[in-house]
Nucleic acid binder design. Structure first.
Lengths: 183, 183
DNA sequence: TATGACATGTAATCTGTTACATGATTAG
DNA sequence: CTAATCATGTAACAGATTACATGTCATA
């Protein structure tokens, strides 16, 4: 039970390994070349992270060396790893998540369809929207209180955060509509 | 020269101490009670951070104890600290910043007016917009390439990032207009 | 006198960064 | 042959989290 908490990078690795086994090098290339540049592509981050996941038996690595090929270790999810990934994705979204780890929410959503199917993606969107709505309200209120105090640049910085959050809420509607249309 | 790199939290502390000296406890309260909840309010983060800044002679702490008051250390910026803060704020904004540390850009902007005046804030906004424009273009292009490959949830997650960035670009225009109107 | 808020810190642990080290294979 | 790329890792260090430790002051 209650395995030691897995950091974002760990889940990113699990999610990437789910559809297709890959080596550490493959994963680094994904991080450095695609839109997932927010995650570190440094070997000092990825190889230890893979080692931790393997120690928790969430993934298993097998050394490939058919006919003089250079050594290359390919990792795949174990059933336990698949379960952990699913469990992480379906967790309801809290205010905490919205404030401190929006990037992780998006990561969960990005993987949701492959791992659990479209219904799970829609459910996540609903949970996200439900958490966002009162948060936007609270931000509006805080903006009112800030109005007379801070210098203009401070108020504008706050406004940027508010707009970004509203933008995200709009996006959840857009995304739900996209799933509607698909059916 | 070239002092050891200061992390985001360090600059947040410098920025907060600039208009008004404060104790570690005051700073923690600011982090936990205002919109700066993204920064850690844990003593294990803040007190060591203050100690580092003091060792670099960017701030100086003085123990207040007028008439049997409980011990309370108040920190203020040194001239070197003010210079470091200014230098950090005026640094031109790079693609790197936009991709990996948007929060820090907003922090720089939030402090800019108090520390350097409205012209500096406007200059920062221009630099930000200039970095955002080509980035949005690049994201659009990447979105095109993604179109046929990823599952819907993956494409939508990407779309969320794209929209957020566009939203930020719009905000820069809004903010510049706000400064225009103020004059 | 006991509770809770004020106020400051430390220690263990975890993760990530940076930089280095190693060696195989392929292209020029 | 040599340079670049493939592929894997390690070691030193910095910073954050969590939990704990300590003591003061006000109030009920």
């Amino acid at each position: 039970m209650s395995s030691p908490k897995i950091p974002s990078l760990g889940y990113a690795l699990l999610g990437l390994l789910q559809p297709k086994p890959a080596s550490g090098y493959d994963l680094r290339k994904i991080f450095s070349s695609t839109s997932m540049k927010t995650y570190s592509d440094s070997p000092g981050a990825i190889y230890p992270a893979l080692a931790r996941l393997e120690k928790q038996t969430l993934i298993r690595g097998t050394v490939e060396q058919g006919s003089g090929l250079r050594r290359r270790q390919v990792f795949r999810l174990t059933p336990k790893g698949v379960a952990e990934l699913k469990h992480w994705i379906v967790r309801p979204i809290t205010r905490e998540d919205v404030v401190h780890s929006q990037a992780e929410i998006m990561l969960r959503f990005a993987f949701s369809e492959q791992v659990l199917g479209a219904e799970a993606s829609v459910a996540l969107l609903k949970s996200f929207a439900a958490a966002l709505k009162p948060y936007v309200q609270a931000l509006h209120q805080e903006a009112q209180e800030l109005k007379s105090v801070a210098p203009l640049s401070g108020r504008l910085a706050f406004e940027a955060g508010l707009r970004g959050t509203e933008c995200l809420l709009q996006w959840t509607r857009f995304a739900m509509a996209a799933y509607e249309k698909e059916k």
